[in-house]
Amino acid sequence: MRAVSYAQFGGPEVLRVVADVPVPEPGPGQLRVRVAASVLHPVDLMIRSGRFPAPLPVGLPYVPGWDVAGTIDAIGPSVGGFTLDDEVIGFSPWLRTTVGAHAEYIVLDAAWLTTAPTGIAATEAATLPTNGLTAAQALDLLALPAGSSVLVTGAAGQVGGFTLALARVAGLHATGLAGADDREFVESQGAAFVPRSEDPARAAAGSFDAVVDLAVIGPSLMELVSDGGGYVAASPPLRPEPVRGIRTFALEVLPDGTRLGELVKLVERGEIPLRVAGVYSFAEAATAHHRLAQGGVRGGVVIVP
Protein backbone atom coordinates (compact mmCIF):
# COMPACT_ATOMS: atom_id res chain seq x y z
CA MET A 1 0.00 0.00 0.00
CA ARG A 2 0.97 3.66 -0.33
CA ALA A 3 1.74 5.79 2.70
CA VAL A 4 3.41 9.05 3.65
CA SER A 5 6.60 8.20 5.50
CA TYR A 6 9.96 9.56 6.63
CA ALA A 7 13.16 7.69 7.44
CA GLN A 8 15.02 10.60 9.06
CA PHE A 9 14.12 13.63 11.12
CA GLY A 10 14.11 17.05 9.50
CA GLY A 11 11.98 19.53 7.61
CA PRO A 12 9.00 18.70 5.39
CA GLU A 13 11.41 17.70 2.64
CA VAL A 14 12.09 14.38 4.43
CA LEU A 15 8.55 13.21 3.66
CA ARG A 16 8.16 10.59 0.96
CA VAL A 17 5.26 8.67 -0.56
CA VAL A 18 6.24 5.03 -0.19
CA ALA A 19 4.43 2.48 -2.33
CA ASP A 20 5.59 -0.82 -0.82
CA VAL A 21 4.31 -0.63 2.77
CA PRO A 22 2.74 -3.96 3.75
CA VAL A 23 -1.05 -3.92 4.12
CA PRO A 24 -1.72 -4.52 7.84
CA GLU A 25 -3.91 -7.41 8.99
CA PRO A 26 -6.40 -7.00 11.84
CA GLY A 27 -5.95 -9.13 14.94
CA PRO A 28 -8.50 -10.00 17.61
CA GLY A 29 -10.71 -7.02 18.45
CA GLN A 30 -9.38 -4.99 15.53
CA LEU A 31 -10.66 -3.55 12.27
CA ARG A 32 -8.86 -2.58 9.09
CA VAL A 33 -10.02 0.72 7.63
CA ARG A 34 -9.57 1.86 4.05
CA VAL A 35 -8.57 5.46 4.65
CA ALA A 36 -10.53 8.20 2.91
CA ALA A 37 -9.10 11.12 4.91
CA SER A 38 -6.81 11.82 7.84
CA VAL A 39 -5.62 14.97 9.58
CA LEU A 40 -2.25 16.61 10.24
CA HIS A 41 -1.56 17.86 13.78
CA PRO A 42 1.14 20.07 15.32
CA VAL A 43 2.50 17.04 17.17
CA ASP A 44 3.16 15.39 13.78
CA LEU A 45 5.38 18.33 12.86
CA MET A 46 7.19 18.19 16.20
CA ILE A 47 7.93 14.48 15.85
CA ARG A 48 9.00 14.76 12.20
CA SER A 49 11.46 17.55 13.06
CA GLY A 50 13.01 15.47 15.87
CA ARG A 51 11.87 17.89 18.57
CA PHE A 52 9.50 15.61 20.46
CA PRO A 53 10.71 15.65 24.08
CA ALA A 54 10.00 12.02 25.00
CA PRO A 55 11.18 8.67 23.61
CA LEU A 56 8.91 6.89 21.15
CA PRO A 57 8.15 3.15 21.33
CA VAL A 58 9.87 2.19 18.05
CA GLY A 59 12.35 3.84 15.71
CA LEU A 60 12.25 5.22 12.19
CA PRO A 61 10.80 5.03 9.62
CA TYR A 62 7.46 6.50 10.69
CA VAL A 63 4.08 6.87 9.02
CA PRO A 64 2.46 9.91 10.71
CA GLY A 65 -1.20 10.66 11.28
CA TRP A 66 -3.74 10.15 14.04
CA ASP A 67 -7.31 10.71 12.81
CA VAL A 68 -9.01 8.56 10.24
CA ALA A 69 -12.27 8.58 8.31
CA GLY A 70 -12.89 5.67 6.00
CA THR A 71 -14.63 2.35 5.43
CA ILE A 72 -14.14 -1.00 7.13
CA ASP A 73 -12.15 -3.26 4.85
CA ALA A 74 -11.49 -6.26 7.09
CA ILE A 75 -12.71 -7.46 10.49
CA GLY A 76 -10.60 -9.34 13.01
CA PRO A 77 -11.84 -12.07 15.35
CA SER A 78 -14.05 -11.17 18.33
CA VAL A 79 -15.42 -7.95 16.84
CA GLY A 80 -19.12 -7.19 16.98
CA GLY A 81 -21.22 -4.22 15.99
CA PHE A 82 -19.45 -3.49 12.69
CA THR A 83 -19.78 -4.88 9.17
CA LEU A 84 -17.69 -4.59 6.02
CA ASP A 85 -17.99 -1.24 4.22
CA ASP A 86 -19.33 0.56 7.29
CA GLU A 87 -18.16 4.18 7.28
CA VAL A 88 -16.26 4.90 10.48
CA ILE A 89 -14.10 7.49 12.20
CA GLY A 90 -11.59 7.25 15.02
CA PHE A 91 -7.97 7.88 15.85
CA SER A 92 -4.73 6.07 16.49
CA PRO A 93 -2.99 6.93 19.79
CA TRP A 94 0.17 7.44 17.75
CA LEU A 95 2.53 8.18 20.63
CA ARG A 96 1.80 4.72 22.04
CA THR A 97 1.54 2.72 18.83
CA THR A 98 3.32 4.71 16.04
CA VAL A 99 0.58 3.33 13.77
CA GLY A 100 -0.02 6.18 11.32
CA ALA A 101 -3.17 7.14 9.44
CA HIS A 102 -1.48 8.83 6.47
CA ALA A 103 -1.74 5.54 4.62
CA GLU A 104 -4.19 3.75 2.37
CA TYR A 105 -5.09 1.30 5.16
CA ILE A 106 -4.83 1.30 8.94
CA VAL A 107 -5.63 -1.28 11.61
CA LEU A 108 -7.15 0.00 14.85
CA ASP A 109 -8.91 -1.46 17.86
CA ALA A 110 -12.65 -1.61 17.21
CA ALA A 111 -13.24 0.13 20.55
CA TRP A 112 -11.49 3.21 19.20
CA LEU A 113 -13.90 3.61 16.27
CA THR A 114 -17.49 4.68 15.79
CA THR A 115 -19.91 5.11 12.90
CA ALA A 116 -19.15 8.22 10.86
CA PRO A 117 -21.65 11.10 10.91
CA THR A 118 -24.35 10.71 8.27
CA GLY A 119 -24.21 13.09 5.34
CA ILE A 120 -20.79 14.52 6.25
CA ALA A 121 -17.85 14.29 3.84
CA ALA A 122 -14.92 12.19 5.02
CA THR A 123 -12.63 15.22 4.79
CA GLU A 124 -14.81 16.96 7.37
CA ALA A 125 -15.54 13.92 9.54
CA ALA A 126 -11.81 13.22 9.90
CA THR A 127 -11.37 16.51 11.78
CA LEU A 128 -13.50 15.31 14.69
CA PRO A 129 -11.87 12.36 16.51
CA THR A 130 -8.65 13.58 18.14
CA ASN A 131 -9.58 17.22 18.63
CA GLY A 132 -13.21 16.56 19.49
CA LEU A 133 -12.27 13.97 22.08
CA THR A 134 -9.59 16.26 23.49
CA ALA A 135 -12.24 18.93 24.07
CA ALA A 136 -14.75 16.44 25.47
CA GLN A 137 -12.24 14.85 27.83
CA ALA A 138 -11.07 18.27 29.06
CA LEU A 139 -14.62 19.17 30.06
CA ASP A 140 -15.22 15.67 31.44
CA LEU A 141 -12.22 16.12 33.75
CA LEU A 142 -13.64 19.39 35.05
CA ALA A 143 -17.15 17.95 35.54
CA LEU A 144 -18.67 21.43 35.79
CA PRO A 145 -22.38 21.77 36.57
CA ALA A 146 -24.57 23.73 34.16
CA GLY A 147 -24.28 27.47 34.72
CA SER A 148 -20.57 27.33 35.58
CA SER A 149 -18.11 29.67 33.87
CA VAL A 150 -15.09 28.49 31.90
CA LEU A 151 -12.29 30.37 30.17
CA VAL A 152 -10.89 28.69 27.05
CA THR A 153 -7.57 29.93 25.68
CA GLY A 154 -6.72 29.22 22.06
CA ALA A 155 -10.47 29.29 21.58
CA ALA A 156 -10.47 29.58 17.78
CA GLY A 157 -8.20 26.60 17.19
CA GLN A 158 -9.52 23.17 16.40
CA VAL A 159 -9.69 21.94 20.00
CA GLY A 160 -10.80 25.36 21.20
CA GLY A 161 -13.72 25.46 18.80
CA PHE A 162 -14.92 22.05 19.92
CA THR A 163 -14.52 23.05 23.56
CA LEU A 164 -16.66 26.16 23.09
CA ALA A 165 -19.34 24.15 21.30
CA LEU A 166 -19.41 21.42 23.95
CA ALA A 167 -19.47 24.00 26.74
CA ARG A 168 -22.52 25.60 25.12
CA VAL A 169 -24.24 22.21 24.80
CA ALA A 170 -23.50 21.53 28.49
CA GLY A 171 -25.05 24.82 29.57
CA LEU A 172 -21.75 26.41 30.60
CA HIS A 173 -20.92 30.10 30.28
CA ALA A 174 -17.77 30.07 28.13
CA THR A 175 -15.34 32.89 27.45
CA GLY A 176 -12.96 32.43 24.53
CA LEU A 177 -9.50 34.01 24.41
CA ALA A 178 -8.38 34.27 20.78
CA GLY A 179 -6.98 36.57 18.12
CA ALA A 180 -8.82 39.74 17.17
CA ASP A 181 -9.92 38.25 13.84
CA ASP A 182 -11.61 35.34 15.63
CA ARG A 183 -14.34 37.28 17.42
CA GLU A 184 -17.07 36.24 14.99
CA PHE A 185 -16.29 32.54 15.32
CA VAL A 186 -15.99 32.62 19.13
CA GLU A 187 -19.28 34.46 19.50
CA SER A 188 -20.95 32.10 16.99
CA GLN A 189 -20.38 29.34 19.53
CA GLY A 190 -22.27 31.27 22.19
CA ALA A 191 -19.13 32.37 24.04
CA ALA A 192 -17.97 35.77 25.21
CA PHE A 193 -14.87 37.00 23.36
CA VAL A 194 -11.61 38.25 24.87
CA PRO A 195 -8.83 39.37 22.48
CA ARG A 196 -5.42 37.79 22.89
CA SER A 197 -2.80 40.14 24.40
CA GLU A 198 0.69 40.14 25.88
CA ASP A 199 -0.89 39.79 29.33
CA PRO A 200 -3.66 37.19 28.92
CA ALA A 201 -4.46 37.08 32.62
CA ARG A 202 -5.15 40.81 32.62
CA ALA A 203 -7.05 40.66 29.30
CA ALA A 204 -9.39 38.02 30.68
CA ALA A 205 -9.74 39.82 33.99
CA GLY A 206 -12.36 38.24 36.16
CA SER A 207 -13.00 35.01 37.96
CA PHE A 208 -13.93 31.69 36.36
CA ASP A 209 -14.97 28.34 37.74
CA ALA A 210 -12.44 26.71 35.41
CA VAL A 211 -9.80 27.36 32.77
CA VAL A 212 -8.97 25.15 29.78
CA ASP A 213 -5.54 26.38 28.69
CA LEU A 214 -5.20 25.21 25.09
CA ALA A 215 -2.85 28.06 24.13
CA VAL A 216 -0.35 26.82 26.76
CA ILE A 217 -0.20 30.21 28.48
CA GLY A 218 0.63 28.50 31.74
CA PRO A 219 0.18 28.82 35.50
CA SER A 220 -0.32 32.60 35.42
CA LEU A 221 -3.94 31.86 34.56
CA MET A 222 -4.47 30.21 37.93
CA GLU A 223 -5.15 33.65 39.39
CA LEU A 224 -8.32 33.74 37.29
CA VAL A 225 -9.71 30.50 38.77
CA SER A 226 -12.08 30.70 41.71
CA ASP A 227 -11.24 28.86 44.92
CA GLY A 228 -12.14 25.20 44.49
CA GLY A 229 -12.31 25.53 40.70
CA GLY A 230 -10.55 23.57 37.97
CA TYR A 231 -7.66 24.03 35.55
CA VAL A 232 -6.79 21.85 32.56
CA ALA A 233 -3.30 22.18 31.08
CA ALA A 234 -2.98 21.12 27.46
CA SER A 235 0.76 20.63 28.00
CA PRO A 236 1.43 18.20 30.89
CA PRO A 237 4.74 19.83 31.96
CA LEU A 238 2.87 23.10 32.55
CA ARG A 239 0.29 21.58 34.88
CA PRO A 240 0.40 23.86 37.92
CA GLU A 241 0.40 22.62 41.48
CA PRO A 242 -3.03 22.77 43.14
CA VAL A 243 -3.64 25.84 45.31
CA ARG A 244 -6.76 27.25 46.98
CA GLY A 245 -8.50 23.93 46.46
CA ILE A 246 -8.22 24.22 42.67
CA ARG A 247 -8.13 20.85 40.88
CA THR A 248 -5.47 20.78 38.17
CA PHE A 249 -5.29 18.28 35.33
CA ALA A 250 -2.84 17.47 32.55
CA LEU A 251 -4.72 16.61 29.37
CA GLU A 252 -3.80 13.45 27.46
CA VAL A 253 -6.40 12.46 24.89
CA LEU A 254 -7.39 8.79 24.79
CA PRO A 255 -9.29 6.96 22.02
CA ASP A 256 -12.87 6.21 23.01
CA GLY A 257 -15.33 5.01 20.39
CA THR A 258 -18.32 5.33 22.71
CA ARG A 259 -17.62 8.94 23.63
CA LEU A 260 -16.81 9.72 20.00
CA GLY A 261 -20.19 8.31 19.03
CA GLU A 262 -21.83 10.86 21.33
CA LEU A 263 -19.93 13.63 19.54
CA VAL A 264 -21.08 12.28 16.17
CA LYS A 265 -24.70 12.71 17.26
CA LEU A 266 -23.98 16.35 18.15
CA VAL A 267 -22.39 16.87 14.72
CA GLU A 268 -25.45 15.42 13.02
CA ARG A 269 -27.65 17.81 15.02
CA GLY A 270 -25.52 20.77 13.94
CA GLU A 271 -24.25 21.43 17.47
CA ILE A 272 -20.54 21.01 16.66
CA PRO A 273 -18.83 22.80 13.75
CA LEU A 274 -16.42 20.85 11.56
CA ARG A 275 -13.85 23.13 9.91
CA VAL A 276 -11.44 22.26 7.11
CA ALA A 277 -8.55 24.60 6.32
CA GLY A 278 -7.30 22.64 3.31
CA VAL A 279 -7.15 19.22 1.68
CA TYR A 280 -3.85 17.79 0.42
CA SER A 281 -2.94 14.58 -1.38
CA PHE A 282 -0.17 12.26 -0.21
CA ALA A 283 2.09 13.85 -2.83
CA GLU A 284 1.36 17.27 -1.29
CA ALA A 285 2.18 16.19 2.28
CA ALA A 286 5.21 18.50 2.49
CA THR A 287 3.04 21.44 1.44
CA ALA A 288 0.51 20.51 4.14
CA HIS A 289 3.31 20.45 6.75
CA HIS A 290 4.51 23.87 5.60
CA ARG A 291 0.96 25.25 5.81
CA LEU A 292 0.38 24.02 9.34
CA ALA A 293 3.79 25.28 10.46
CA GLN A 294 2.90 28.80 9.33
CA GLY A 295 0.29 28.98 12.11
CA GLY A 296 -3.07 30.73 12.14
CA VAL A 297 -4.84 27.67 10.74
CA ARG A 298 -8.56 27.72 11.46
CA GLY A 299 -9.63 24.21 10.61
CA GLY A 300 -8.19 20.80 9.95
CA VAL A 301 -5.32 20.27 7.53
CA VAL A 302 -6.57 17.12 5.84
CA ILE A 303 -4.52 14.48 4.04
CA VAL A 304 -6.17 12.17 1.47
CA PRO A 305 -4.70 9.17 -0.40
Rank of each mutant, 00 (worst) to 15 (best):
V4L: 12
F9Q: 06
G10C: 07
G10V: 07
E13W: 09
E13N: 09
E25H: 10
P26Q: 03
G29Q: 00
V39G: 00
P42V: 03
M46K: 15
R48D: 01
P55V: 12
L56K: 06
L60T: 10
P61V: 02
P64H: 03
P64V: 01
W66A: 11
W66S: 12
G70E: 12
I75K: 11
P77D: 15
F82R: 03
F82H: 07
F82K: 02
L84R: 14
I89C: 02
G90A: 04
S92P: 10
S92M: 06
P93Y: 09
E104H: 10
I106E: 03
A121D: 15
E124N: 10
T130S: 05
L133S: 13
L133P: 14
L141R: 14
L142C: 06
G147M: 01
A156H: 05
Q158F: 00
F162R: 05
G176I: 08
G176H: 10
D182R: 15
S188C: 01
A203E: 10
A204E: 04
G206H: 13
I217W: 01
G218Y: 11
P219I: 08
L221A: 02
M222K: 07
E223A: 15
A233L: 14
L238K: 13
P240H: 03
R244K: 07
R247Y: 01
A250Q: 02
A250K: 05
K265V: 12
G270M: 11
L274I: 09
F282V: 09
G299K: 08
P305Q: 01
